[in-house]
Amino acid sequence: MDYAFEAHGLVKRFGKTTALAGLDLSVRQGRVLGVLGPNGAGKTTAVRILATLLRPDEGRALVGGLDVVKDAARVRRLIGLTGQYASVDEDLTGMQNLVLIGQLLDLRKDEARARATELLAEFGLAEAGGRQAKTYSGGMRRRLDLAASLVGRPDVIFLDEPTTGLDPSKRDDVWNIVRGLVSDGVTVLLTTQYLEEADALADEITVIDHGRSIAHGTPAQLKQIVGGQTVLARPADPGRLAETEAILTGVSGRPAESPSRGVVTVPVDGDAQFTEVVARLAQAGISVTELSLRLPSLDEVFFTLTGERATDDSAAA
């Protein structure tokens, strides 16, 4: 069994809207696949099909080698799902939520309780376990939700925008959990609108737009799509921005840009040109507070591929 899951040519229509227009996705066991795309690209629809919640109109999807339509019941024993919105029952306590899932997964009551206790402790919810989930903070709720998808020790976990709406520090918590899962050998499908998140967690990224995969590769490979590297300089004296820009343009032979106030960037062909920039800035006596050579961000990749700015907006589709 090579792939933890694979989807071929998935098509799903809702009335006149085509949510998926022949989507292919696959990932090997023990890896994290980031599925990146704007709102309405079809990310959630794809997850719902792989998690057996929706039937595709066309195409085929396998999880652990089992067909998600024909073998749905067996697929459900292999997967864990964490939806876009925290899918725990708010009236139940954290403990009751996890015990319920355990019982639905055919654990005996005492086993379900033991597993729930174990997970609550792992996710820093041991003390909160006896409180109703509606009293939890957003971060705690998300952790409980993740814990709920792990009760059955799934091989494959689907995380549909797991950090949407969380503030950055809580996001880090979730990221650490995902990294922990991977070290356990679990395969993860992560959908996100946050390029940073895909960059931080995913081994491979599939960029989808309008229900189709438009690029696939490691984060580094995708960054190469935009090509080359970028030099970024921030002169200490903002008055010397124009001079800095002239130096960068001179070295690179391509026009420099100022993407934000006080900063100039230019694409370069390699680190030799970076050294050149350093030398010329020193010659001109321009001191800088920031000077770096970097691969383009996934943001830029995304823009190149889709022609749309990825929104960092937490309003989800």
Partner: peptide, 21 residues
């Protein structure tokens, strides 16, 4: 509310095995 740092490892000597039907 304090945020505990989550130990990201699952206990390898888990007490409860994978559920069977």
């Amino acid at each position: 509310m304090t945020t505990t740092v989550i130990p990201p490892v699952q206990n390898p000597e888990a007490t409860v095995a994978r559920p069977q039907p």
